[in-house]
Design a protein around this nucleic acid. Structure first.
Lengths: 335, 335
DNA sequence: ACTGGTTCTGAAATCGCTTTCAGAGGGTCC
DNA sequence: GGACCCTCTGAAAGCGATTTCAGAACCAGT
């Protein structure tokens, strides 16, 4: 930006204005279309801009306008296939509204999330927070700053913050219904991060499941395929006929291990994923799972944030439904 | 940022300085540690910062410092599992150097790439360009601006731009060697985007392959699993015994179709991926493929960019080697 | 010809921070 | 005690845009 050695000197609005023989104010007006300018001047400005290769400095614009033209997104783990698809949609929406997208990753570490959000607030008009783990108190502190913010996959009762999330509870209820219908009576759930709201929502479905005859045992596991791989063997010994998972990654890990051990799926045990990262991607894995349209999720999230920025409008929490996809890894229990 | 309705008023450095009874310059010095300040003043400043909840405005800092503290990354497709892993590493490196990461996506459309890069240059200290498709002339135009930039997976002879890429050529050569050794004589390559350097590098390997007895036919396909799914059937009829692909996604699509058609893999035909997105992720797909450590790739890319920003040092193109992973989808040809 | 009302333009203030510059204060050395 | 040097602090000048404000120019109406 400033002239370091070997860097071409920065062209400013003043360079343009002198080259065009007008004032800087006029250049600004022409470029932003904020006021009517004589057409001969308009041409001169455009010529000068082209000749000099002028590009307005975003920091200066941000400072003067009081808006950065940027939104920020915090995700726990970029490598989790869930988020890139969401980011993609968010990016498209915000770009359509002339905003850039800043991305930060907490690497699943709640301790750094607060700082990262704080940093995002220093340089973004609004923040999309995909942070299921953050302690309620920290979240409250962030909310109190009144910086535009949308919560993703976490609904916090009592906070006046717009939020969007997937109806995990009804998704898991569908999974349980499917298994019960197939005749399963005992299943294990490979639990995700215990502090997470999304995990709690899934678990909440198991109470209702008991009503239709399915008993689900919760087993600590994690959110990675590695965790699924490591945990599944011990679970099998307990004699369950189905394994539910926190997400598809865990299910893949579990399947991988079962396969190595020569356990037939779904003949000996059914495995059900959650979130459907596999759809049309690694299609031939054919995991039974429950899905949410991630691009719609991202799109809606972006739109909520945009509305919030433009009219400061607080909306009611939005829940998107999940859909069950019965594929090859679920079947009736062994008799 | 400015006081919109319902938003808490912005705290500036002047608020802090008056609250602490010092000058703004001193506040700045304390916060940035750029000069020695009397310890009693330091305490007063810190107290005021805490009491007021002051956070420096990033745009103002950027303007004053002549640095945005931000790097920009342009990727063709966020949903391609290749990139999130790279972004993750880049993000970690740049964060370690105190820089934020802006992400843009061209959605595989070369026409918008130029504008996006231009936009990134307006608000980032440096740009990491993962853009294999952009016409050489546009790339040249961007290079001519002397804005710090690193090319990712594209080496352009004659441009003085640091670049990092995977040694696709040697990767594909390994694949060919593997097949030749198994006894294959005729294979088809499901080609990626024809304008892409990365695709050309792969194809270049087929000349050498002829030397060890493998004839590879190039078939137009694309970069998605959908494309692999659609194209593979026609290819089979040509009587090849192995199918090479532009990337793992294409291979997955192809496998999916073959499976539907009841074609045995690898008994009837071998399928080989490229890039190994599956490793430890959807491990049980067990695709034979060739891999590159994506986090190292991202890390090195981030480091090159950082060095470029700090010492303006232009480096020689860096090539990272690929590794062949023989798994379940390749075997000897049917006799 | 003079007044009043539109347009359009440029000078200057502003956004919030960093950094230079000069001055105040205190210590050391002759 | 005076000259000199150091260290620390505050005033003020940027950074590069936007935006307010007031004046210039022009037109129409009497």
């Amino acid at each position: 930006m400033q002239n370091r050695p070997g860097r071409s000197p920065r062209v400013t609005i003043n360079d343009v204005s002198t080259a065009a023989g007008v004032s800087a104010a006029t250049v600004s007006r022409v470029l932003n279309g904020t006021a009517k300018v004589d057409s001969s001047l308009v041409d001169r400005v455009h010529d000068a801009v082209r000749d000099l290769g002028y590009r307005p400095n975003a920091a200066a614009q941000g400072l003067a306008r009081g808006e950065w033209g940027t939104i920020g997104v915090l995700v726990p783990d970029l490598a989790n296939p869930y988020f890139p698809e969401v980011l993609k949609a968010v990016s498209a929406v915000s770009r359509a509204h002339g905003r850039r997208m800043m991305v930060m990753e907490s690497d699943e570490d709640p301790a750094v999330e607060h700082d990262l959000v704080e940093d995002l607030m220093r340089c973004c008009d609004g923040v999309l927070l995909c942070s299921p783990r953050m302690p309620r108190a920290e979240l409250a502190e962030l909310v109190s700053r009144k910086h535009p913010m949308v919560l993703f996959n976490r609904v916090v009762p009592g906070f006046a913050v717009p939020s969007i999330s997937v109806d995990f509870h009804s998704g898991m209820t569908q999974v349980c219904g499917h298994l019960a219908q197939l005749g399963h009576r005992r299943a294990a759930y490979l639990s995700g991060p215990s502090a997470s709201w999304a995990n709690a929502e899934r678990i909440r479905a198991f109470e209702a499941a008991r009503a239709f005859g399915l008993e689900v045992t919760v087993v600590d596991c994690g959110a990675t395929s590695r965790a699924g791989y490591d945990v599944v063997a011990g679970v099998l010994e307990s004699g369950v006929t189905a394994i539910l998972t926190y997400n598809d990654l865990v299910a893949f890990g579990a399947l991988s291990k079962l396969r190595e051990q020569g356990v037939e799926v779904p003949a000996e045990v059914s495995v059900i994923g959650f979130d459907d990262i596999s759809l049309d991607r690694v299609a031939h894995s054919n995991l039974t799972t429950v899905s949410v349209p991630r691009d719609e999720l991202g799109r809606r999230a972006g739109e909520i944030l945009e509305r919030l920025l433009v009219n400061g409008y607080d909306e009611d929490p939005l829940y998107l439904p999940m859909t069950l996809h019965v594929r090859d890894t679920s079947g009736p229990p062994r008799t």
